[in-house]
């Protein structure tokens, strides 16, 4: 369980970073947080609704051609298409991982389950917040922040 958890924490930080990069309004960030809690609490039953939410978010990104502020205007669109595909696949994978961990927890005794769910949800939401903070603090260094 340690490796999936580590991947999930990294994934949540990635979500936070991209949510900040795409200047997602607070409602979108709240939805992302709720998805984390929902997936952990429900298990496999959350995969279809959560994937639908992810797909709608990606559809909005594509339909309204939303780019992060650092994305160069003169670069070919195909690189953005690659990025969106990776974001979509990665987000669906994160949702499945979240559901897998949630399902494992559902089979544990009540008090233990509630405790671990609470700790995990808090940790993952903190990872989300950390990812957003990293973007706001101009990380990573190779992004040409001074030209934005």
């Amino acid at each position: 369980m340690a490796l999936p958890l580590a991947i999930l924490i990294l994934g949540m930080a990635g979500w936070g970073w991209w949510l900040a990069a795409l200047s997602v309004p607070p409602a979108g960030i709240v939805i992302a947080g709720l998805l984390v809690v929902y997936g952990l609490g429900v298990g496999w039953g959350s995969v279809v609704p959560a994937s639908a939410v992810i797909s709608v978010a990606i559809a909005l990104l594509v339909a309204f051609d939303i780019f992060p502020a650092f994305w160069p205007a003169n670069i070919h669109y195909k690189y953005w298409a690659y990025t969106v595909l990776v974001l979509w696949g990665g987000s669906v994978a994160a949702v499945c991982l979240l559901a897998k961990i949630g399902q494992t927890l559902r089979q544990r005794p009540g008090v233990y389950r509630w405790g671990v769910q609470l700790v995990l949800a808090t940790g993952l939401l903190l990872a989300l917040q950390t990812g957003a903070s990293l973007y706001q603090n101009h990380w990573p260094g190779w992004v040409p922040w001074e030209h934005l």
Partner: peptide, 9 residues
């Protein structure tokens, strides 16, 4: 959407 993104990629 997937086909459009793959085509664009």
């Amino acid at each position: 959407m997937l086909v459009y993104l793959i085509k664009s990629a």
